[in-house]
């Protein structure tokens, strides 16, 4: 069902929504950019509709809402192991189609990979409802090449234009709320149909790519900072640590924290053994995970084409450029 709701009215609707949900959306954090006098556009909890930024891509992705950067698994007291039990409200996330689709990749790892579901992820994930945002595409995106430009997985769609908000509500539970504030109107989500960047992801990547000299370029260029992985909405790796509290050594916690295949230590084991020491090897591992390995397990691409990894890389390393190179090498091999 579609609605047209005037801005002031929508603010009221939002207010009502906020009574029952924690709402996350793209916001501007003034002067919180890495460089002085720059802002950070990122996901955060919002109190009012006016805080939401509709026309910019967020630097970090919404994954941290369901997969916090640091998450306590257990609290230890002297003689017990306790799970954190924080009861929270349900969660609403304002997101574009690519970001909503990224949750499919997260779900695959946390809920499907291996014999167990990850209970910490699931607890948060099952509370999430999405409000879809329209998108006209940004620099470095290529969602349309992956089909992640479109989604059906949303409870409502919200498009702010001029003095009104054009909405489509799919969640039966929400229809009453929306109809209370707006008049019915024909609304269909607006998706990107073609990005500035269009290319095909190679369907078949031969093992010969492992030995290819194309990766040595990344050994020279990549600094192993890990930005590409922390901004990626689909990177899921973590490491588990135990902490002993400084003020009382009998208490502590076990927690997990994001890990990155690009950063030193990811494969390092006791005894000093490790794998993929060169940044080129790490880049290969990351890129193939995104566009090939994951797909072999789950049948769809992990990468959603949001372009954040490229936006964030200070060395101007571009995933699309890398994929393009792989395609060319594979096409060349086909010919031979």
């Amino acid at each position: 069902m579609g609605y047209k709701i005037y801005r002031e009215k929508f603010a009221d609707l939002f207010h009502e929504l906020r009574a029952s949900y924690e709402i996350y959306a793209p916001v501007t954090k003034k002067d919180k950019g890495m460089y002085s006098d720059t802002d950070l556009i990122t996901y955060d909890k919002v109190e009012s509709f006016t805080e939401i930024v509709f026309d910019k891509k967020t630097f970090f992705s919404p994954k941290e809402i369901v997969f916090p950067i640091r998450q306590t698994l257990f609290y230890f007291t002297e003689d017990s192991v306790l799970e954190p039990t924080k009861l929270e409200k349900d969660i609403v996330i304002f997101a574009r189609a690519c970001d909503i689709n990224s949750f499919r990749s997260l779900d695959a790892i946390f809920l499907q990979n291996g014999p167990y579901e990850d209970p910490y992820y699931k607890k948060l994930r099952q509370r999430v409802k999405f409000i879809l945002l329209p998108c006209d595409g940004f620099e470095n995106c290529y969602c349309a090449c992956l089909g992640t430009n479109i989604t059906d997985n949303y409870s409502a769609y919200v498009d702010v234009r001029d003095d009104a908000v054009y909405c489509k509500v799919k969640d039966a539970y929400w229809k009453g709320l929306w109809s209370k504030y707006g008049e019915e109107s024909e609304v269909e989500p607006r998706y990107v149909s073609k990005n500035e960047n269009t290319f095909e992801i190679p369907q078949k990547i031969n093992n010969s790519i492992f030995e290819h000299q194309m990766w040595s370029e990344y050994t020279n260029r990549c600094t192993g900072c890990g930005r590409c992985t922390v901004v990626c909405p689909t990177c899921t790796c973590f490491t588990v640590h135990d902490i002993r509290y400084d003020d009382n050594s009998k208490y502590g916690e076990r927690r997990r924290v994001w890990a990155s295949c690009q950063i030193d230590g990811f494969t390092e084991m006791a005894g000093g053994h490790g794998y993929r020491h060169k940044q080129g090897e790490r880049t290969r591992f990351r890129v193939l995970h995104k566009i090939s390995d994951f797909k072999k397990r789950f049948g769809f691409q992990m990468c959603v084409g949001c372009g954040r990894c490229e936006d964030a890389c200070q060395e101007y390393i571009s995933l699309k450029n890398c994929i393009h190179k792989i395609s060319e090498i594979m096409a060349e091999e086909e010919k031979v």
């Binding site: 291996g114 490491t239 588990v240 890990a259 390092e268 193939l288």
Partner: peptide, 22 residues
């Protein structure tokens, strides 16, 4: 391999599309 979960979530043990822990 380095392992942080043993159950196919943490990603440390992954080689290509294979999880050593699984």
């Amino acid at each position: 391999r380095k392992m942080s979960c043993g159950i196919g979530k943490c990603g440390h043990c992954k080689i290509d599309d294979t999880y050593v822990c699984l």
